[in-house]
Design a protein around this nucleic acid. Structure first.
Lengths: 335, 335
DNA sequence: CTGTTAGCGCTTTCAG
DNA sequence: CTGAAAGCGCTAACAG
């Protein structure tokens, strides 16, 4: 049913109906009530494409993320979607699978006006930020979260990774570790670099010299990560603690330790970023750093909607850092 | 830039450009090439809203699911999105949080033509299927996956839950369990009922009588689940095996067993549905049944696109069941 | 093979 | 406060 047909039933004009549905101030309360009552009864909704075309607005945002089979990102989406639903917005999802080409394809596409705003988390491959800046040039509201870059001047929301790196390492030191290896999921990702800085400063605070050879620079390729880690663990170098900057690297560590018959946490203590509840409950041997993923999603979405609602303001200096939690098994709270 | 302005640059008509971009057969190869070359150069894309309005098609599908912070659904989305991206479609996500009202709100909204098709997994609360049938009445392609119902006559894709229930229980029996409790995540969900049937038939195959009192009917409320499970485990009843139909119930089991000082798997063996890789690697004590979530997402999306492409066909008898895998720690393959 | 034209359904002036 | 009319940008039918 079109708005015209709908209007005919009430013997008023299409324009009036449109205004009533959009809660325009130039429509009387009585008319509004009549329109809304009938709209509810018939479940009438104006054609969204016609409306989008006319208003050049869409009530839709895009979420561009590297992957979703990862509790951090899926929880972030949960937060984003909940805010979007509250605001009457729709949420498009695009996965880049850490692939720069795919990311560029998505970003290019989003320039066409399909969405009112973009929430993005960069892929590990991304080193050229032209396309993000192009969104900004075209005044498309953009908020970066988690995988951010200072090469893009827009609002950013992320974990306080320095803090997380610090407290995780401190925990290992407090439990007696002397030689702690740092597993980096990327050599370049901002969040990983910050975690490493926290790690280094925690060592410093305990008067331990930072040893570059204890840093394992992993990549997205789990096969080569396997060799890298295997090497370090085989030689041992008296490593008695591991700080893993990503969940999948912790899994790998478990695997390799099991193959090498190294006992966690007896011989090597492990702290890892992980957003899986299961992990902390089932694995007393693993201490996890849990990011506020859901809250970050919410925060990022709220920030995006602020920009959408007030497009002329400058949001490039908005930088929100959120604290992570350290979960040690014994102190873990129940459901 | 509009298609008109774009056409002017090439000194051809807007209609020609439109046809060229849509790869119409009535446009010469040379013209097509010229148009596409310039479109790439300028990254020109026709306004999608105008196009959607005119064609009454949108290149967008909706995914309606109960939750996302759950490896099953997030992997399913991964599969769905990968097929959608391949087909040049966009993917809208709606989370119902197991809330029937939210689900209805979303479904009602989707009647307005915003999307070309819907993939849905029902919430646990859903008992009235009117709104799903309304989508079908309006000829909106619909595929149900995982949380399905035979009250809705459309294509369905799900796990072979009977089989999974059978092999999981069989594993417990094979390892010597005599008294196996079944943790149902819902008393009504089709998939859970099928899992239970598999469980019962496996018991039968081992000449063990099915004991209704060993079934724990859990709900979405984890607090009441805690009491239910706690009761059963406290009394023990010589339960020596637990089949958990959902991951979160396995977590709960771990918690409670740890509080009651019951050792898993020494005193009680545990098999649970779980799609987390972490689970199998870190918890040798847990045997998992892994659903083909990614593949199911793909399959569901492919089915949906078939319906979208051939809307007049009847798809109500399409019913695809996919096999789960049993992962026992020692036989788990590495990355 | 290319161009002209009408109209998809809505919203937004502007006139009453 | 309500209505008439123009037009958002595209595509499909039709004419050439």
């Amino acid at each position: 049913m079109t708005i015209k047909e709908f209007a005919k039933i009430l013997n008023i004009s299409a324009a009036t109906v449109s205004k009533a549905l959009n809660d325009s101030h130039e429509i009387s309360a009585t008319t509004k009530a009549r329109v809304i009552a009938l709209a509810n009864e018939l479940n009438f909704q104006p054609n969204p494409h016609a409306s989008s075309l006319r208003k050049n607005k869409n009530k839709t945002i895009a979420v561009v993320i590297p992957e979703i089979s990862n509790n951090f990102f899926s929880k972030a989406i949960d937060g984003i979607e909940s805010i979007a639903q509250e605001k009457g917005y729709h949420t498009l999802i695009y996965l880049t699978h850490e692939n720069y080409k795919k990311e560029v394809g998505v970003l290019k596409h989003l320039l066409n006006g399909r969405v009112d705003g973009v929430l993005a988390s960069m892929s590990l491959e991304t080193a050229d930020y032209t396309y993000y800046n192009e969104l900004l040039d075209k005044n498309l509201p953009l908020v970066l979260f988690d995988r951010i870059s200072d090469q893009v001047e827009t609002a950013k929301v992320c974990t306080d990774d320095y803090h997380a790196g610090f407290i995780g390492t401190k925990h290992l030191l407090d439990t007696g570790c002397k030689k702690i290896s740092f597993l980096a999921f990327s050599e370049f990702a901002y969040s990983c670099l910050r975690r490493k800085e926290g790690y280094i400063d925690a060592l410093k605070a305990y008067n331990i010299d930072f040893d570059e050879s204890l840093v394992v620079n992993c990549t997205y390729d789990m096969v080569s990560n396997f060799s890298l880690l295997n090497n370090i663990l085989k030689k041992r170098k008296k490593v008695d603690g591991i700080f893993s900057s990503a969940e999948n690297l912790a899994i790998l560590t478990y695997q390799i330790c099991s193959e090498l018959a190294i006992q966690i946490p007896k011989e090597i203590r492990l702290v890892s970023f992980s957003n899986m509840q299961l992990a902390s409950f089932m694995s007393p041997s693993l201490t996890t750093i849990t990011q506020p993923a859901f809250e970050m999603g919410k925060e990022a979405a709220l920030t995006l909607f602020k920009i959408i609602d007030k497009p002329r303001t400058n949001y490039k200096d908005v930088f929100i850092e959120m604290k992570s939690n350290l979960f040690i098994r014994n102190s873990t709270k129940r459901y």
